[in-house]
Design a binder for these strands. Sequence first.
DNA 1: TTGACAAGTGTACGAACGTACACCTACTAT
DNA 2: ATAGTAGGTGTACGTTCGTACACTTGTCAA
Lengths: 189, 189
Amino acid sequence: MTIEQHFANIVSFYYANRRMPSYQEIAKLAQFRSKFAALKLVNHLIEAGRLQKDATGRLLPTRHFFEIPWLGSVVAGYPNPAEEELLDPISLEEFLVKNKQATYMLNVTGDSMIDAGIMPGDIVLVERREHAKHGEIVVAQVDGEWTLKRLYKRGRKVSLEAANKKYPPIVPKEELRIAAVVCSLIRKY
Amino acid sequence: MTIEQHFANIVSFYYANRRMPSYQEIAKLAQFRSKFAALKLVNHLIEAGRLQKDATGRLLPTRHFFEIPWLGSVVAGYPNPAEEELLDPISLEEFLVKNKQATYMLNVTGDSMIDAGIMPGDIVLVERREHAKHGEIVVAQVDGEWTLKRLYKRGRKVSLEAANKKYPPIVPKEELRIAAVVCSLIRKY
DNA sequence: TTGACAAGTGTACGAACGTACACCTACTAT
DNA sequence: ATAGTAGGTGTACGTTCGTACACTTGTCAA
């Protein structure tokens, strides 16, 4: 078995068991009869930056465990995954969620933001925040009603603009309460 | 300290250390002087379904560790996060990636799919696959060039259609090689 | 006031952990 | 042929793990 396969087995174990294997378990995965052989294997993987240990000697997963290969752009040509990746691979969770405590998912219904590429059925990740900048897409309550719109702020003038010609801009009469700011969009096919 | 805070501390530990704490460490987090108090706390959390143990007695993270609260839909009104969540919370990774081995990220450039809500700068998660169904969005090589288009299949007729009136459908003269199928879309603001 | 009960303390114990060392193969280069 | 070396085996050791039990403390209802 190659070292690649050993590493793949460790990653698989982590996904199946939601924890890192012990040296005993690594030995089993690699079909060694001795823990020490597993320890040497692990040390090689650590030197290669593919595994990590914490201060107490426990094994930790590295970014290689979570990341999805990032291949570059489509029109630039579809690169061969066997080649070196063009961009750093990345963990989805880390990539999309900055402030976990304040982040929520929200279904989008309605076509009011369709020209901004937000379609009915999409999911937005929003961060709870009461203040937003000009141009950000916000979840807001205007005169008692909740909507998803782009915030326009020009001096004292504040309005919420849909990205769809069918809907006119909303200028709040009484109150404009911003509940959250859209920080990313997800769509499943 | 409430049990909520204890649980939050354990989740924080998991995020900071990429592993579950030992009972000793839980005792420290909860400011107990005895491991046994931590064990009792953990048992309560296990009964509540917030923690798990595997066959070897090790603690495991549950779905509560990964999930992002899902609040429902925007136009239906913005629900109060303090209330019960409307939909099951979910882990992004689990939600978006089915087949981890074959999944890659790809940057989108160009506006050829803009009417399908795929804008330049977006990222698509694609699954490597050579066969696609009618209507799926595919990464394909037609006559030597890579593109992102919607696949049209009607009997023997096969073509690639852009979602933008500026671009005419592409009917492959020689070969149509499908490299991957788009399974989800991500956009960061 | 008293009794019941939940919650935290301190100590103990076997099992499993990470680590170390001597030994034993194969293979490689000289 | 032979010496060196990388990789696997078996055993050993101190530490930490999860678990258990008896004890103390604080709280609340009767």
